[in-house]
Write a protein that binds this DNA or RNA. Structure first.
Lengths: 144, 144
DNA sequence: TCCTAAAACGAAATGATTTCCATTTAGGAG
DNA sequence: CTCCTAAATGGAAATCATTTCGTTTTAGGA
């Protein structure tokens, strides 16, 4: 697995430092999104020195390279998610337990086309995310 | 126009205070999204006293009532937009000049259905927004 | 093995947003 | 029209997630 991540970093032209790999590994081991501080707290005992800014920086760089994805959260804090799916897709995120599920197809390319034409401009990106409660949390009467 | 806004506030069970109405009027006069601080600066000369927290509070309450909408911005700051369109719809926002255009139909209801079924949970909300450059900004070589 | 650009440190700064509580006000009741 | 109360506001201060800074360390190609 580390090998896989090291290669992903090489593709992104980022150095495969131990801390960067550890961050990736930790995110990869979850099916939920995590905040920089949470990851930092969990990684601290694996390194005698690990700065919170390092975690922030790495997560941001990894997201910029497309290795991980950002989650849009109502509280507007930063959360990241490691996603094996390399195809263009979107996410359903559970606001209670933070589980993330892929939404494989979105018909947005067509919409982008149409909107570009109509406004005569250029669509650079789109945001599509479904928020809700996963099966378990809904059954348990969870709240966002 | 103020009458229209006062009614909208009554519908939302919010008092029609002068400042609240002024905030709504100012947003309504724009075809672009605005930040709390920008609105505050522009409204300050119309009131001898106007606190920035009041602007933040009002914008948040108005958005919660659905009278105005929030814009999701890459810089993660708060922006708001007044939208006459009372139907469910989404927005194209120009990252350069901040112009907002409606995207009338989204096929997301179907997607919500499908995802709810698949995960056995509940989709509470969805985010869909197209980011880009409007016709004018794209022609002028604008940057996000 | 060296060298250099990239990465990490951690203390400190930042700055948008929120909180607090005292004061004012809108608007329904009488 | 006048009262009354819940809602709204002011303004200073706090919050706190995130970023910056200058220095030190390190990965990895030469």
């Amino acid at each position: 697995m580390e090998q896989r991540h090291a290669l992903a970093l090489k593709d992104a032209k980022m150095k495969a430092t131990p801390k960067r790999l550890a961050i990736l590994d930790m995110l990869d081991a979850e099916s939920a999104y995590a905040s920089p501080e949470e990851l930092w707290k969990r990684l601290r005992d694996r390194f005698d020195r690990l700065g919170l800014p390092t975690v922030y920086r790495n997560l941001e760089e990894l997201a910029a390279s497309g290795v991980i994805s950002k989650v849009i959260h109502p509280n507007r804090q930063l959360y990241y998610y490691f996603c094996r799916n390399r195809e263009h897709h979107h996410h359903f995120v559970c606001l209670s337990c933070r589980k993330v599920e892929d939404i494989p197809s979105c018909g947005i390319e067509a919409l982008e086309q149409e909107v570009s034409q109509r406004i005569g401009g250029k669509v650079l990106s789109h945001i599509l995310q479904l928020n809700g409660l996963c099966g378990g949390c809904a059954a348990a009467g969870g709240t966002p």
